[in-house]
Write a protein that binds this DNA or RNA. Structure first.
Lengths: 357, 357
DNA sequence: GTGAAAGCGCTAACAT
DNA sequence: ATGTTAGCGCTTTCAC
């Protein structure tokens, strides 16, 4: 078993010193083109590749990015966070980073709940997806590691974030319901501590108000603890049993929307004739339920990619300005509100073939 | 900014040498309980945590596992591989490993197509999911890294693998169709180079034969290049246009099954009355299509977990025996074959509430 | 522009 | 059972 070549071998073979080889390899300028070319030749000849651990030790750099998501979020919206994570993974690859994923629990006080990659200095920066205990943010910040928040906001300190344009997304969803003739529009939601959900709820009310509509309190179920399928069922049951039930529902996310949809169907309601439903997130499954769910599309992978791009920018050039990006959230009209397609001539109707498979 | 403590600090504080501290920390035996206790106390006191890079350099160990999946597979069966990956991730965490994910292209000759984590010696072992170019397996083997295959087999050399019990899975699916009265049973598939698919196809034919049934060749569409939703549509169109069309379909996976389902519905066929359909994999979406799809459940996370467990066993104890594990594949009967539930009194009927949300 | 020297923080023989 | 001694392979001042 022949040993793999080290930087020393490259130095010897090219008649240079290890430090020069290192400089040449790391694009550090200060190396003549001629030298660099020679180094590259020998590197290729020998099939040399630096060892990550050695680089890490010498440069206090790991080549990894940490991805943190709370247990709760991940368990209840796996489809969502998985795709964000995939986005980070794909983008990180382009920049020669790997992503270490970790799921954290509610409690942060216990020492063992700190992600190992932080304790071992095994990441150069961190992406946090969804809401978390703010203490972890402060802890990471204290470590001096750059942080990018995805779909979450930190109030106490400016922090770069990639957010969803919940305002416009919600506005287009609710406006759509109004436009196709509904006035009795309910809300299905929960976990209002999450900024995104709170924003969707707020914009739902604001949009109705702008149109001179006032929702009956019994049409609103916003106190579910989770945003899950099951919570959607529960919430819908509550709302649909109201003496004067709503004729349309805006759900805080697709899981709840689908839960509501199932519940409504079980009660014998026809969707969208008896009840129109709009969700938020546009999960893959949403275009497969029957009727197919109208939803606000969130570009999940893109959010992950943006987060990585931002993080890498910071890492590579030591930028420190906090930047907040808002990704679009576009309404995708499907059968759960459109009825027979075309009937209401909605602005955006997804062709059946567009289903992303 | 105070520097983090090193092993030297722990040594000093506890009046021991760095090597003793190292031994104590790594459970290496050979350390008195008394000493270990003292070390632990100081470690806690100082909040010491070893730096991954330093450990790596000194011990030629990375603390990472590599996860490789082909671009093609990942793009076409993301739902499947994502869950396997999640399984590895969750299990790896229990054993203090992180998983580095990489997607590889078809071609392997080009040097730059070798996963960077291999070149940089940044993983201690590798999990390969789905079929890949065998050269990569040989390359990794040449590196001396342990490999666990998931849903794939390597012929030239014994290699540990976590496989799906396709035989029993397929047998139960096809038997179910026969049991509920069908005799004209078609097959929807493709990419027969994949061992799992080939096995499902083979067992499909064998099972029919055992029951004295002979499928008309026009009922079989097994030459699609991909196993995608779209391929499922195409294949179903072919098969359903046969002069004497089949009354039931067994699809090689759920994506194709759902493609077939859409296609059949578009042609005005009622499912399951006019055409019964069974898939394989039991993706999350399968329990949300209408009618809900009967499928063979594959425990994807469990496959990932098993692979990691095996890999860690090898890493920790230097085991070298190749082991092949087969994970169960159980039929889940839903509406795409059961019709009104209970009509055929199938063995396993999933309650609606069982949907994993 | 290039080289020499000094670590980075840890593990692993080997000695005691 | 514990300490001594060497590195692991690379980066990074700092001279020249």
């Amino acid at each position: 078993m022949k040993k793999r070549p080290t930087i020393g071998d490259v130095a010897r073979q090219s008649g240079l010193s290890a430090s020069t080889v290192s400089l040449a390899l790391n694009q550090s300028g200060y190396v003549s083109e001629k030298t660099r070319a020679k180094v590259m030749r020998v590197v290729k000849e020998l099939g040399y590749h630096p060892t990550r651990a050695a680089r890490g030790l010498a440069s206090s750099t790991s080549g990894n990015l940490g991805f943190i998501v709370s247990e709760d979020h991940f368990a209840q919206a796996e489809q969502f966070y998985t795709r964000v994570f995939l986005g980070t993974e794909l983008e990180a690859r382009l920049h020669d980073y790997y992503v270490l994923l970790t799921v954290i629990g509610r409690h942060f006080t216990k020492g063992n709940s700190i992600p190992r990659f932080l304790l071992e200095r095994n990441v150069d920066g961190v992406i946090i997806a969804g809401s978390v205990n703010d203490k972890i943010i402060e802890y990471i910040d204290g470590l001096g590691l750059p942080i990018i928040l995805v779909d979450y906001q930190f109030k106490r300190k400016p922090c770069s974030a990639v957010l969803i344009d919940n305002r416009n997304g919600t506005r287009s969803a609710v406006s759509h319901l109004i436009q196709i003739g509904h006035t009795r529009i309910g809300f299905i939601g929960g976990d209002l501590r999450h900024p995104s959900i709170a924003e969707r709820y707020g914009t739902y009310k604001a949009t109705l108000e702008e149109h001179g509509l006032v929702p009956d309190p019994s049409w609103i179920a916003a106190d579910e603890k989770y945003l899950s399928f099951k919570s959607g069922c529960t919430a819908a049951e509550k709302v649909l049993s109201a003496p004067s039930r709503p004729e349309a529902l805006f759900a805080a996310n697709d899981s709840m929307a689908i839960g509501s949809l199932h519940c409504a169907k079980r009660q014998g309601l026809r969707i969208p004739e008896d009840l129109a439903i709009v969700g938020f997130d546009d999960l893959e499954v949403s275009s497969h339920v029957e009727p197919r769910l109208t939803s606000v599309r969130v570009h999940k992978e893109e959010m992950g990619r943006l987060a990585v791009r931002r993080l890498v920018d910071i890492l590579r050039s030591k930028l420190t300005t906090e930047v907040t990006a808002h990704v679009r959230a576009d309404l995708i009209v499907r059968e759960s509100t459109a009825g027979k397609l075309g009937e209401y001539a909605p602005l955006t109707v997804e062709a059946e073939d567009e289903v992303a498979w």
